Amino acid sequence: MPRLFLALVLLLFGRLALGQAVPYSNNPTAGKYATVRGVKLYYETYGAGAPLLLLHGNGGSSKDFQKTIPYFAKRYRVLALDSRAHGKSVDRTDSLSFELMADDCAALLTQLHLDSAYVLGWSDGGITALVLAQRHPEKVKRLAATGANLWPDSTALTPKLWQQMKRGYREGRTQTFTDPTRRNDWKVFLLDWRHPHISLASLAQVKAPAFIIAGDQDIIRAEHTLAIYQNLPRAWLWIVPNSGHATLQEHAEEFNRKVDEFFRVKTIPAPVR
């Protein structure tokens, strides 16, 4: 083993032994790249057991799951993915969609020789989880989605957020982005401005049991979250008290426990309509 590489490995494990934070989304001992559908995707693997795919939100990375991974790595083989155009994943195309990212997830699982996985998605990751379950039902054992929406307007998002997005679009649409980083940031913004477009009726295609979650002070309207739950064939619902959009971070201990319970419980009741 080259001395420099050995020194880096020893340094990393020395930090972990001292209780310092794991560098999620930038961990050389857990991270790998997979070329999938022409895109170089970065992901990190932790733990052993049934596979669990973690999907972060808009502009984020797998680092967003730093309070999630340690809990689930005790029982699952956690795959923490940086979605295309996010984190360390490379994407040189000019636009994004949730269909693209859901197809990436399915292709990654296939490349890793995994028939299916549990899926936990936050915000945009929750949307991707729902689209993955629609387009590739055989790949999803069960899904948990927190802070997801089905379409981009003021009936799904809070008025404050929708006004912020409209201002952002007005300011950005006339600009020419020559810097690659800013151009990528604009592409990521447009993902949420233009997408998703999921009808309530189409949720009937989601055969996997689903756990639909949102904070009681979320940026997603409560009635929108309720409609998602009511239109899924097999679902649980949890509106987290005293929580904003970051339910998995603000209430990490309870969040992890309830999602794990959902993944392992034998019977999923039909939603009340």
Rank of each mutant, 00 (worst) to 15 (best):
I228T: 05
Y229L: 05
E223V: 15
P209I: 13
D192K: 14
A210Y: 03
L237N: 11
L248W: 06
R183V: 07
A246H: 00
D218Y: 00
R234S: 02
T247V: 15
R183L: 04
L237P: 07
S199Q: 09
V265M: 14
I198D: 01
F263V: 02
E261A: 14
R257T: 10
R234E: 07
R264Q: 12
K207L: 00
W238V: 02
A227V: 03
A227S: 14
S199V: 11
L203E: 10
R183H: 08
V259S: 04
L203V: 00
R183F: 07
L248S: 06
T267H: 14
Q217Y: 09
L237F: 14
A235R: 03
K187F: 12
G215K: 01
S202F: 01
A222G: 02
A208P: 07
A246N: 11
W238N: 03
A214Q: 05
A210E: 03
E261Y: 12
H251W: 12
L203W: 09
A227M: 14
T225P: 00
T225Q: 06
H245K: 06
N242A: 10
L200H: 03
F211G: 11
D218S: 06
F189W: 15
F262C: 09
W238T: 05
Q230A: 12
I212F: 02
N256G: 04
P233T: 15
L226P: 01
K187V: 10
R221C: 11
Q205D: 07
I268N: 09
A270S: 05
F255Q: 06
S202T: 08
H251G: 07
L191W: 08
A214P: 04
Q230S: 13
V265H: 03
R264W: 08
H245Q: 05
E223N: 14
A222D: 11
R221I: 10
A246Y: 01
Y229G: 03
I219H: 08
P209M: 13
A235D: 07
I220A: 08
W238A: 04
I239G: 06
E261M: 15
I198G: 01
Q230G: 15
E254V: 01
D192L: 11
I228Y: 01
I239R: 15
F189L: 06
P241S: 10
H245G: 12
N231G: 15
I220T: 06
A235T: 12
E261H: 07
E253F: 08
V206E: 08
I213Y: 02
S199I: 10
I213L: 12
N256F: 02
F255V: 02
Y229M: 12
A214G: 05
I213R: 01
H224L: 09
N242G: 06
F189H: 11
P269G: 11
F211N: 08
D216H: 01
D185K: 14
W238I: 00
A222I: 14
V259H: 13
F189I: 08
N256C: 00
N256M: 00
D185V: 12
